[in-house]
Every structure is written in structure tokens, then in C-alpha cells.
Amino acid sequence: MMRIFLYLSILIAFILLLLGNSWKIKKIQVNPLVLFIWLLVVIYLSIIFVSPYFLFLLFISIFLTKLFVSSSLWGRFMKYSLYTALFIFLFNLLLVQYGSHVIIEWHFIRITVESLVFAYSMCLRLFVIMAAFAIFNSAVSLESLFSILEKLKIPQNTLITLALSLRFYHVLSRDATEIVDAFRVRGLPISNGNLRERIAARYPVMVALLGNSLERGIDMAQALEVRGFPSKKRRSWYTLNMHPRDLLSTSLIFLSFLLATGYLYFYGYKIFPELQIPSVSKLLLFVVISFTLLSVMLSRGDENAYH
């Protein structure tokens, strides 16, 4: 039965990845701080658990969250995850040769049931992390994220550097395209030459991009100065308030964190040398841990705060 569950999970995961982008029930504005804590816990859970059963349930929990906290980035993130997952799957399948149930053994290739399941788990881990980021990045603006980090006492200079890097990522990528085009017009064999010529042709592009970025950097530094930065008396416009329902939501997320840590401490989980199939009671515990995370939807964005 557990094997059927495993096969079915593969099918469902792919359906959700491919078709889930347009599915949406309602848009809930969740509290950015609670969502940030949710994101950290999801990443923690996806890293400490290797069980495909748990990771699949965690993925379903995130997908259900996505139906309510709609994500405009879901489709794009999942598309890139699928490409990456393909490499992760093959890489793990060919290089991880442990396991007792051999399917194929030919020269240096040794594929076992366990390595197959491990490769699947690694892909699920990627999907979980990317899905959580797709939700977080769509629901929380850059400024809200900085307010969160500011609240966590991350230094101002680090935050502004991070903010500028994220904002100027698009500008630099546009600059890079323009520079490549400008050098192609000058006859540099960027797309038509042989491999050596093409690699050599990238050098001026990189130097030009660096020069442009340095100049932008100086301009930005001037702009920061005349906008009063840095400042010892800086006060954030955005305030992050935690209401009782946000505290309840955070407590439940924390409970999920404790249950997961406790489970691994007492029971552990192994794929090698032989795949551990969880009992029904353990599977139920997996369901509780993953679905408790849905409590993030109890929280609400503060109407009085900015946004």
C-alpha cells in the first residue's frame, strides 16, 4: 500500500507542478513576518527529512497554501525547478550506488530501488524549497522583507546592499544584453566564431559590464548620500504588528517544527541500505507535521501598516 502511495505521489506531484499555476481559490494577505517564519520552517523540514513520503506531504501542504496565498511566480519557479530536477535525478541515480534491491547493474552503472527513491526525494526537496520561495516572493515585497530583517537587527548597510543588488539585477542583465549586442555589431565573434574565439570575445563584454556597474555604483552612492543615508536615527515607515491570530499561527508553525525535530530525534529515517516504509501511525504524524503548517493562513497582513 505504501508503495502505491509512493507511485501515486510521483504522479500527483507532476500534475501539480505542471497544471497548478492557474489554480487559485482565494487571495489572503498573510502577515509577512509569519510567512517568513513559515518559510524558514519549511526549508528546515525539507533539509532534515529525506523521506519521500514526508516531502510529498509537505509539498501538498505548500500547494494548498498556494491556493489561498496566490503566487504569481509559481509557474516560472516550477518550470525552472523541473529542468533542474531532471539533472538532479540523473546525477543522483547514477552516482548514488547504495541500496540492497538492485534493478540494473551494468559496468559502472548500478541502479537500485533505494537510489531511485533517493533521487526522487532530492527532486521533491527542490520542489518544496522552490514552491515555498515562489509563495514568499510573490506575497512579500522587498521592502517588507527588509523591515523583517531590520526587526531582526540585521545591519543597515547589509540591508541596503542586498536591496540594491536585487533592484539592479534587472538593470545589469539589460546592460549585459546591450553590451553583447554592441560588441557583436563591432564584428566580435560572440555567436558565430569557434569556441575559443567565443570565449575570448566574452572578455571585453565582462570588462565593459564591470565598468558600467562601477559607474552605476558611484551614482548610487551619491544618491544615497543626498537621501540621508546612512543614518543613526533611521526609523522604518513599515511597522510589523503581531495580532493574536498571528501569534496563534506562529505558535502552530513552531509546533510543527518541534514535532519534526522530535520525530527525527526518536525515530530517525533511513533509505539505505534498505528503504524504510513508515507505518500508518508514522504517516499520520507526517500528515500532522506538514498540515499544521497550513496555519500560516490564519495570519493576516496588518491593514494599518504600509501596503
Binding site: R167, M220, R227, G228, F229, S231, R234, W237
Partner: peptide
């Protein structure tokens, strides 16, 4: 204009110098 706007939304950019100067919310 590209090199002097530091925040990612219009109202946050306008508020940015005021935040730095420590104005009341």
C-alpha cells in the same frame, strides 16, 4: 533616473529619505 532610485516601489522611494531622517511614522 535609473541610478538614483533605491527602493523598489514609488511610495517607498519617497518615504526613504524621511525614514533616514528619523521622521515620525
Amino acid at each position: 533616473p535609473e541610478n538614483q532610485i533605491l527602493m523598489s516601489t514609488v511610495e517607498r522611494e519617497i518615504a526613504f529619505p524621511l525614514e533616514n531622517m528619523g521622521f515620525e511614522r
